[in-house]
């Protein structure tokens, strides 16, 4: 019951917390052309751990915004307009906060749980690995 595979099917969180699981899921998403959603999810986690006093942190917030939210990418399409506005305004005012991407990450995570994660568990990529 403690095998990695048992953990992968438990939840999306357990899958992403496992190196091989995250890697395989990434390969699957690359094929489905929505790997940006996973990279965004990890970027949010990485951002939360950054030091707010470090000038790098604002640059990373801007980079995340530019890469995933400002344009019409797959991440932007899955976010609520209010969530995008909130992040845009925070960056404009340079009001950087560790939790500024939390809501966006939650929205992306819910979509991943409902769609990509379920598809992954029945995909040939996963079944072949099993």
């Amino acid at each position: 019951p403690d095998s990695p595979l048992a953990r992968w099917t438990k939840s999306l969180h357990s899958l992403l917390g496992d190196q091989d699981g995250a890697h395989l899921f990434r390969t699957f998403l690359e094929r489905e052309k929505c790997v940006d959603t996973l990279d965004f999810w990890f970027a949010c986690n990485g951002f939360r751990q950054m030091d707010l006093k470090d000038t790098k942190t604002l640059r990373v917030a801007k980079a995340i915004y530019k890469r995933y939210i400002e344009n019409n990418s797959i991440v932007a399409k899955q976010l609520k307009p209010a969530t995008k506005t909130y992040i845009r305004d925070s960056i404009k005012k340079q009001q950087i906060d560790s939790a500024m991407f939390d809501q966006a990450q939650t929205e992306i995570q819910s979509t991943m749980e409902e769609n990509a994660y379920q598809m992954f568990l029945t995909s040939d990529i996963y079944l072949e690995y099993v």
């Binding site: 992403l16 917390g17 496992d18 190196q19 699981g21 995250a22 990279d39 990890f42 970027a43 949010c44 986690n45 990485g46 951002f47 751990q49 950054m50 790098k56 640059r59 990373v60 801007k62 980079a63 995340i64 530019k66 890469r67």
Partner: peptide, 20 residues
């Protein structure tokens, strides 16, 4: 000075699970 892409990549990598 690091490029934006490098900073973003570094941020993503820092959050990836490590081998136990």
């Amino acid at each position: 000075i690091d490029s934006e892409d490098d900073l973003l990549q570094e941020c993503i990598s820092s959050a990836m699970p490590k081998k136990k």
